[in-house]
Each structure stands twice: as structure tokens, then as C-alpha cells.
Design a protein around this nucleic acid. Structure first.
Lengths: 344, 344
DNA sequence: CTGAAAGCGCTAACAC
DNA sequence: GTGTTAGCGCTTTCAG
């Protein structure tokens, strides 16, 4: 007789949650049949299926998704990484993603980097640890470590917002072209001394890309393109600050091209308080096409970016890839529209 | 010789991801020591720890959190359920939650019910399948099935936004009292014919609670309290619609108490377009204290709700409970502040 | 401080 | 259509 007498097998389980095995026993089938009845019902006879479903109902079984994911080596998680939640733009992209993914039974794992590329790397590492089915991240810029990590990953990667040299899939718009578009519009309206004002453009480099386009057009016509960065936070307060600062630094300007609508609307409302005529004394333009721009007087001239569309299209392409279907285009330009208000 | 000759044991693993076992081998320790070196480093000798960490770095090991969660029967997920992402209020609560939880290594699983209680039930079921450490949900109202499910759960449940008869933990403010507060303010300013205007108050029942408080005060003083629901979506457009409708239905009113700042700001900007004097011809009040209210002219009278605080405090209480510390209060009133603008 | 063994609850692979 | 078996990669348990 051995000295080792395991009278009772070691037990660990504390949770009283019913398991699939118990469901199977109650239904008089094997666990795999119970599993199939829930996941691939078409592979199971109707009789078995009904009995399993009844047992589930009666026992109050809730599938353990953690166990399922481990066994199948894939979770129905989609990692989504954005630089900010304070910006309505990303919220709308997230909404577009969420609606589309949730309808297919995927759950979003949301990460907010606060415009910090190191945080992006950390988050992606963590998310990969959850065996995500895909990754959707805002932007094309990543730290070198992050890039290495991403290149070694074998699931779909979707980079959204701007277009360019993407790792895998890419949905967005051409920010430089948007900048050019607005600069041309301002020139058409007769403006010659135009300042560009952004908030934290080092981090929000898409605002920088728009400025590049803006500058290209202005300098191409022989004008200067002064640029002001008021730092973060931006928002309506930032817009007010930006207006004051631009008028102080560049007294001769007749128009300000703001990096986004929050800033532009803040400036416009501030001009109202100051008794400045818009666009008579100073013209104001924005970017994004937020609803607020349609409600201020004068209405804000801006560029409508199809944010919800970015989310929806990105999700659709990722789902297509996950379903094994060929992806129509690796790159998808959702475009933009100039919205002419009376503020320019 | 048996007919069954499994030349090679069945292999399933497709993923080439390095595992903890490989790290352990490279470091010359057992897997459990490698595990401890990563999770409870204080239980491991410094020599072993360094070798494991080196191996991790070299191999590029990313912990499989799914496997870890299954083995330990708990994940570092916090389920967070909100009725809408279109509303800045919930975004700010989520931000407060996220900052606090992420700092402790918890990941939020975000669910959006779109004001549908059945979806809440479904989401909670799914989230429980992920072995969440806690649940944070907006509101005290749940479907009966959901309530049963929640009552049988053994992890912390935090209900946020309004105060009341909670299942477990509760952080929020008294919406009826907020409604009373604004009604009193309007009476003080001399208004007697006041309409309350909301959007989709059947779903957004907290707006309904505020109306109850509002009505109580007005009727207590012998005035009527007409209420208008313009349906969803609300937003700035809804506010404009609400102003038109209220003036049409109740031509004698001198003030409108809107259910939130989006509506109120929309009405205020619309009044500006119509050339209506605010508050001379019509006074406008809101709820939430969004930044926009400080930027319009006249500034919006509203009630500041401490949204980020709700998120932060809720997260802190949950973390305290998860750490096994006694919770100071099951219920936490974060209060509110009347912000007097010039719109009333 | 370290390790061997035994699962966590489920699904992939194969066999019938 | 159904069942058996063998894991998924990690952590718990128990024994040094």
C-alpha cells in the first residue's frame, strides 16, 4: 500500500455555476452534443436540441466563454484602440464599430491611449492575451515595438481614420486633401491672410496632416501659412483661447482655419461674446461637421467626415475577413464633404 | 500490434504563440515558478525571477489571459453597461471608471443597451460568461429576469447615476431633488408658467424623475406643470424642435425647463436664430452642466452633475470591495450644483 | 522557495 | 447524428 492515498481527488471549483456537463446530463446527451446544440444547432437532431435547450433554461446555464475561448483558441473579442474618448469623433467611430460587430456576436474591448504610443503598445499586448479575433486601431503611427508585435500577429488588423501605408486593412480619409480643400475654399472666399489653429498637434498628427495640405495650397499661391498650436486641452475653451491668440499674434488675418469643430465653434461663440462680426471681421472654419456647427449663427463652414461610416465599413471589412471571404479592398477611402456655412 | 497506431499525438494548437512552458524551459525552472515570477514575484528568488523575465523578453512571451482566467476562475474584466454612447454624460462616467480601473489592471467590457432592458439582460448574461470581477450598470431599473440573474451573482454590483433601492452598491445623485432645485430657481426668478420638455422620457426615466421633482414644487405652489416629450433623438435638433413645440402648445409660458443641456442649448441657439430674447421672451434651463452651456450667450442656467466623479467613486468603491476591504458606504450621494447663467 | 500533479469548462479531432 | 478522447495554457493544491 502506497503512502500516497488520495482519498478524494483534489477539488478546486468554488463557483456553483452550472456547467455544460450538467446540462448534458439533464438532457441525457454527451457534453459535445450539448455544445453543438448551442453553437452549431444545425448539426444536431431536433429532438436532442430541444432537450438541451430545455435543460439550459431549467438549470439556468450561462456558457463559460473563457473556457470556450481557451478550447477554441479564439475569442469573440475585437480590440479597439482610440487615442481619446473626450473627442466625439472617436465615439462615433466606436458606435459604428459596435453596432456592426455586436450584431455578429462580437464584443469590443475598448482601449484609450490618451495619445500615448507606449500605452498603445501595452494595450495591444494585453488585448492579444485575450486571443482577440481582430484589432481596430486609430491611426497609422505606432511605436517600433508595437509595429513588430503587430507584424507578428496573424489576425486581421484594421487601421482607421487616415489613409496611407497600412499594415493590413485601412479605412479612412485623406486628411491632407481635406486641408487643401478648406484652404482652397478660404482663398475662393477672398481670404489671403489665414491662420491655422490647432490644439496639441504633436499628438493629434492628423490635424498636422490637414495643416500640411492647407499650407501646400496657400504657399503654392504665394501666401504664408502661419500655424498656431494652443496645446491641450482643446475643446470650446481652446477655441476661445485660439481666437484671442491668433488675433494677437497675427493682427492682419481675415480668417482662421481651425483643426476641428470644437475649436471652431468655441471661437465662433467667443467672437459672439466679443461682438466680433463673423465672417466680416474674422472668418472661421472647422473640420468634422459636428451638429453644433449647424446650430450656431452664422453656421460653421466645415468639412464633414463620415465618422460612423468609418466604423461601420471598418467592421464590415473585418467581419468579411474573419468569415474567410476575400476582402474587396485593403484600403477604403470614405471621403469627405465640404459643408459651406456662413462663417466664411 | 493494435490497429490504432497514433504515430503522432493529436495536435490542435495552430497558434505559434510562445507559452509559459517554453519560457520556463528557457529559464530552467518549472512552469509554476515562471508563473509566480510574473504574478507574485515576491514569492520567488531573485535569481529565478531575473532568468524568467529575461526569457520572457527574449522569447517575446505574451501571457494568455484566457487560460489564466479559466484556471483561476476570475478575469480582470469589469462589465460596464450604459444605455447610450451618444450622450456625453455616459462617456464621462465611463472615462472616470476607465481611468480608475485601468490603473489597477482591470479592463472594462463595455455594453450599450440603447435604452432597451432586454438588451441589458442579454449583455449581462454574456458578460457573466467572461467571469467578470464586477458589474457597473447605469440605473436601478432592470427587467425581472435580469434582477434574478443579478441577485444570484456573487460579485460586486454597482448601480450608478441615480440613488435608490439598489441591489448592492450605489453611486449617484437625487434626480427628483435636482428637478425640485431648478423649479425653485425658476419660481424665484419670477416665472409662473413653466413647461418641462424632455426627449424620450419613457426610456430616459431619470429625466422623468427630475420632472417629478419639478412638478411637485410647482403644484405645491398652486401652478400647473405641463410636460412635453418630443421623442428621440433629442440633441440640439431636439431642443430646437422642443422650443417651437412648447411655444405653440403653451403660448403663455415664460420659461422652459429642459431635461438636459443638449436640448436646452439647442433651444437657446434656435431662439437666437429666431430673434427671440432669452430670457426676456423665454427663459431656458437645462441639466448636466456641459461646457457648451458656458459658451453660449446668454450662458445657460443648468445643474452641474459630477459625472466623472460618479465614475471615479464607483470604481473606487468596487475596487475596495474587490480588495476585500470593507466598503464605507453602500450608497454614495455625489450631489449636484445649480449653475446660474443668464438664460433664466 | 520550488515543483508535480490535477484540473478549470469547453471544443477540435477523430471514430463510429 | 453522436460520442470518446485529448487537449487549450494556465493556476491551484499539496508536498516537499
Amino acid at each position: 500500500m502506497s503512502s500516497r492515498t488520495p482519498i478524494e481527488p483534489r477539488r478546486r471549483r468554488g463557483s456553483t455555476q452550472p456547467t455544460l456537463k450538467e446540462v448534458a446530463e439533464a438532457a441525457g446527451v454527451s457534453t459535445i452534443t450539448a455544445s453543438r446544440a448551442l453553437n452549431t444547432p444545425e448539426l444536431v437532431s431536433e429532438a436532442a436540441r430541444t432537450r438541451v435547450l430545455q435543460a439550459v433554461e431549467q438549470i439556468g446555464y450561462v456558457p463559460n466563454l473563457v473556457a470556450g475561448s481557451l478550447a477554441s483558441a479564439r475569442s469573440r473579442f475585437i480590440a479597439v484602440i482610440v487615442p481619446s474618448l473626450a473627442n466625439a469623433v472617436f465615439i462615433e467611430v466606436i458606435q459604428g464599430l459596435q453596432e456592426t460587430f455586436e450584431a455578429q456576436g462580437y464584443q469590443i474591448l475598448l482601449g484609450n491611449t490618451d495619445y500615448d504610443l507606449r500605452r498603445e503598445y501595452q494595450m495591444i499586448r494585453t488585448f492579444f492575451g485575450w486571443s482577440c479575433s481582430a484589432l481596430v486601431t486609430a491611426g497609422l503611427r505606432h511605436s517600433p515595438a508595437c509595429r513588430t508585435l503587430l507584424e507578428g500577429w496573424d489576425q486581421p488588423i484594421m487601421e482607421v481614420m487616415e489613409l496611407g501605408d497600412a499594415l493590413d486593412l485601412n479605412v479612412g480619409l485623406d486628411h491632407q486633401e481635406a486641408g487643401r480643400c478648406m484652404a482652397r475654399h478660404l482663398l475662393e472666399r477672398g481670404h489671403r491672410a489665414i491662420a491655422y489653429v490647432g490644439a496639441g498637434m504633436g499628438d493629434d498628427y492628423r490635424a498636422g496632416l490637414r495643416f500640411e495640405g492647407h499650407r501646400e495650397v496657400l504657399e503654392g499661391q504665394g501666401f504664408t501659412a502661419p500655424c498656431l498650436d494652443i496645446g491641450r486641452p482643446g475643446g470650446l475653451d481652446g477655441g476661445a483661447r485660439g481666437l484671442d491668440l491668433a488675433l494677437e499674434r497675427h493682427p492682419g488675418i481675415t480668417a482662421i482655419h481651425f483643426a476641428n469643430d470644437d475649436l471652431a465653434a468655441g471661437a465662433l461663440l467667443h467672437a459672439q461674446r466679443l461682438g466680433l462680426d463673423v465672417p466680416g471681421q474674422i472668418a472661421i472654419a472647422g473640420f468634422n461637421g459636428l451638429p453644433l456647427g449647424r446650430h450656431v449663427t452664422p453656421r460653421l463652414t466645415t468639412i464633414l467626415s463620415p465618422r460612423a461610416t468609418i466604423g461601420r465599413v471598418a467592421a464590415e471589412e473585418v467581419l468579411r475577413r474573419l468569415a474567410g471571404k476575400p476582402v474587396r479592398r485593403r484600403q477604403h477611402d470614405v471621403g469627405f464633404t465640404l459643408l459651406e456655412g456662413e462663417s466664411t
